[in-house]
């Protein structure tokens, strides 16, 4: 694909006898929301971790924004615009919600070898952070210690942190996992507002969320991508029905 923001070629990762990524080829177009679905243990999180730079692939390449990033570590990829959320909520628990996002702003705006001025008094860090909190609906919770936020709020906080780094690509690992119905609907509505503006790779088990948000869906089984297509195409794909969706959902 000519206009791919993310191009994955022959990506392979083996854990002992388990082939968690088996020669994965995948293109994600600029502005696209691309969902990756598959049964537990299909290798979705392993794939996300390799895209984020937390895991080194055994073989294959990852090109991001027309540059080979296969050998870059996670912080370098983040600074190039590749942001992620974690499957298990990962935040700075002892810091306030605003601190959490301000740290993300700081990471994105570069210079951190500054030893004198109080970071919490810098409008250049606090104001974009406040705006990102407002955007995800946490504006009123800025000064709450992150550990004391409700589970759904913590997931929103993670998204706010990712957004504060002004990403070009957002890797979301099960963003609505563990949320109540209402919370998850709110999150899906919010993610829908990001569509087009930000390219999104979404791993999710909640099929309502996937079919609402995704422009295209890739189906992973046993480390391989067995089908890629629009939601109706995937829904109609025989292999997918057999391998994954099952009778109760198809």
């Amino acid at each position: 694909m000519a206009d791919a923001l993310l191009a994955i070629r022959g990506l392979s990762k083996r854990f002992g006898g388990l082939l968690a990524s088996d020669r994965i080829d995948l293109d994600v177009a600029r502005g696209e929301t691309h969902a990756i679905i598959g049964p537990n243990g299909a290798g979705k999180t392993t794939l996300i971790s390799q895209l984020a730079g937390d895991l080194r692939p055994d073989a294959g390449s990852i090109r991001f924004a027309d540059q080979d990033v296969t050998r870059l570590d996670a912080p370098h990829r983040a600074r190039r615009g590749l942001a992620r959320s974690f499957q298990v909520t990962s935040i700075f628990r002892d810091f306030s919600a605003l601190d959490n996002v301000a740290l993300a702003v700081q990471a994105h705006t570069g210079q951190s070898f500054r030893f004198w001025r109080a970071a919490r008094a810098e409008p250049a860090l606090r104001e974009p952070a406040r705006a990102a909190l407002e955007a995800v609906g946490l504006g009123g919770r800025a000064h709450v210690r992150a550990a004391n936020l409700a589970h759904g709020e913590q997931r929103q906080l993670e998204i706010a942190m990712a957004l504060a780094t002004e990403p070009r690509l957002l890797l979301l690992d099960e963003p609505v996992a563990g949320m109540g119905l209402e919370e998850s609907q709110r999150m899906v509505r919010f993610l829908a507002t990001l569509k087009r503006r930000i390219t999104i790779v979404l791993v999710e088990h909640d099929m309502d969320a996937v079919f609402t948000l995704a422009d295209r869906i890739s189906v992973m089984v046993y480390g391989r991508i067995i089908a890629t297509g629009t939601p109706p195409e995937v829904r109609g794909n025989e292999d997918v029905r057999r391998a994954y969706l099952g009778e109760d959902q198809a």
């Binding site: 912080p75 942001a83 992620r84 990962s90 628990r93 994105h108 990712a162 780094t165």
Partner: peptide
């Protein structure tokens, strides 16, 4: 507080 998170937002620690 959280090393993987600090790396994920872009700090080479």
């Amino acid at each position: 507080s959280n090393e993987p998170r600090a790396r994920a937002i872009g700090f080479s620690l």
